[in-house]
Design a protein around this nucleic acid. Structure first.
Lengths: 215, 215
DNA sequence: GGGTTCAGTAAACAGTTGTGTGCCGGGCGC
DNA sequence: GCGCCCGGCACACAACTGTTTACTGAACCC
């Protein structure tokens, strides 16, 4: 199947990585729509024209960063939700996992948080699609709990979105804590746990019939 | 007290408005950190140098936009929470109020959503401060419900933050709906109502003693 | 070993940017 | 009515931007 990595492809992949890393690094202090192509190549140490060998655009590089940033998170969440079934344990584990992920990949999280509603349409779309997948995945996992018996897929979907939104906000709050703004890391974790607990309580008392009036 | 508006101050205020409006308009398609000073003055029809008579920076203009965007929202929320006390009614009213606000001031909402985690530190800080005030305000209003009897101020605060986060997400979802991306407006409203109901249910069954382990 | 492929180069292109200077001219206070 | 105030202007500055062009040279395939 997969033939030799071919030393030339290897070098290409290496500078591609360098471009991605440099871009991500520069995004600590600005947003994607103001990130310059020359700025990136300068940081890497290659000529501006060489950029086009790897990406068509800066926003193209941005889209590539989305996958990279969110890809490895799926497994984290999956394990966070399946390893425990008891509420309190599960919440502790999940919040801890998010904190660990933020600590391990702060720039990726910052990138997603900034560009989720940022100025580059293609990137916004890519992030929205990825978060949608997360919501569906979470909904699927939560559907297996006994508590979810009889829930409509629509309600499960709503629950998944609530979880995902909450997780993104929490991750972003951890980030701010890590860099000194806002409340400290433990305070963020404390709040996040209580918020998840609140949702979890609501879930347990959810009645499956329609609760609110129609559109 | 307030002396005459002094026709000259009046003209100054008028071009200041024009600058703010032009800036806000241009932010539909990009983010603040890439918004150029010349771009703004060009849209208004004045010379670049004239910009400095009103703002020191583009980010200075951004900070001014924050107040403007979020200032008028306080009253909306206050009335949305106080006019009804019954859960379902209150939720309907609140979601409706958010939808109306987004329809009335779409650019302002887009601005806040983009720049909340955007690249300009001063603006980020200003938005965070304003949203903090919202959370405190919501917490204060919810404290008056019978359901909140015995809640610690810390828990109330957490509840307020949950509400505010949810409202921001909802507003942003309405915005995407209005411009064709994502689900339609009624679907957003439907999801938002169910999410608020979920939180409301959790609130009703919240037990005042510590639920989760320490930090 | 010879020809081809291709990541990276250097240079030039026409625009753009933020900021500083000096100056005008109409509303203002006296 | 005179003189100051001050919002706005024109112009110049150096620095920067994205993109194209023709090129080099090393790894590649046969």
């Amino acid at each position: 199947m997969s033939t030799t990595p071919s030393q030339r492809d290897l070098q290409k992949a290496r500078t591609r990585r360098a471009l991605l890393d440099a871009g991500l690094g520069l995004l600590k202090e600005q947003s994607l729509s103001s990130l310059g192509l020359r700025e990136i190549t300068r940081a890497v140490g290659i000529s501006p024209a060489a950029f086009y060998r790897h990406f068509r655009d800066v926003s193209d590089l941005g889209v590539a960063l989305v996958e990279e940033s969110l890809g490895s998170l799926h497994e984290v969440i999956r394990s966070g939700l399946t390893e425990h079934t008891e509420d309190a344990e599960r919440i502790d584990h999940l919040v801890g996992a998010i904190a660990a992920y933020v600590r391990a990949h702060p720039e990726h999280i910052r990138f997603v948080a900034s560009e989720r509603h940022g100025g580059v349409a293609a990137v916004r779309t890519a992030i929205a699609a990825e978060l949608d997948r997360f919501a569906a995945e979470v909904a699927g996992l939560l559907a297996e709990d006994e508590v979810s018996r009889g829930w409509s897929t629509e309600d499960l979907r709503m629950l998944g979105e609530t979880y995902v939104d909450n997780m993104v906000m929490t991750a972003s709050a951890f980030l701010e804590a890590a860099q000194g703004d806002g409340p400290a890391s433990e305070a963020v974790a404390h709040t996040a746990r209580r918020q998840l607990h609140l949702i979890s309580l609501g879930r347990r008392h959810w009645t499956t019939s329609g609760q609110t009036s129609g559109a």
